[in-house]
């Protein structure tokens, strides 16, 4: 595309990626979560693809596929962490360890170190959605020859 689009994309893509990471990281405190943050980060991939064309980002296809598989496997493993009670039981919440700080009842300022396995699942699902949608976008861009009109 034109140089205007490429310049704007170079400025905007880091901002979009940082916002997607924020939505994923604060998923247990603020609105949003893994799927929403992953979709926001994948829109940065879409902007990159529209700006510079698909052949320039051909190398990203394999890392996105691996990221998608790793996210799915991590999500299932985190679900199995609570298998002593039930599947998907939150075994880390309120235990004092990683993400285990207790939360007082009622309205309170959020602490990042809470909610047990929920933030880890947010990261797993966020990376999975980013990888899956990014791989789909790159495949759509690469389909039918390498022309870049």
């Amino acid at each position: 595309m034109s140089v205007v689009v490429r310049t704007i994309a170079r400025i905007l893509i880091p901002v979009i990626l940082v916002f997607g990471g924020y939505v994923i990281l604060h998923g247990h405190l603020t609105p949003g979560g893994g799927f929403q943050g992953g979709a926001v980060a994948a829109s940065a991939v879409a902007l990159l693809l529209v700006a510079v064309g698909a052949p320039a980002v051909k190398k990203l296809k394999a890392p996105f596929s691996v990221l998608e598989d790793l996210g799915g496997v991590a999500f299932v493993v985190l679900g199995f962490l609570g298998i002593g009670f039930t599947f998907f039981a939150n075994s880390l919440a309120g235990m004092g360890g990683l993400f285990g700080a207790p939360v007082p009842s009622g309205p309170n300022p959020g602490v990042l170190n809470t909610a047990g396995t929920v933030p880890l699942m947010n990261w797993a699902v966020g990376l999975k959605v980013l990888g899956g949608l990014g791989a789909v976008l790159v495949l759509f861009g690469l389909f039918g020859g390498d022309d870049d009109r």
Binding site: G33, A115, G116
Partner: peptide, 17 residues
């Protein structure tokens, strides 16, 4: 949800727990 999942965001507590 605050006592069981220790999450302030009830929507995320429902979705992931």
């Amino acid at each position: 949800s605050q006592a069981e999942v220790a999450a302030n965001n009830v929507v995320t507590a429902i979705v992931f727990d």
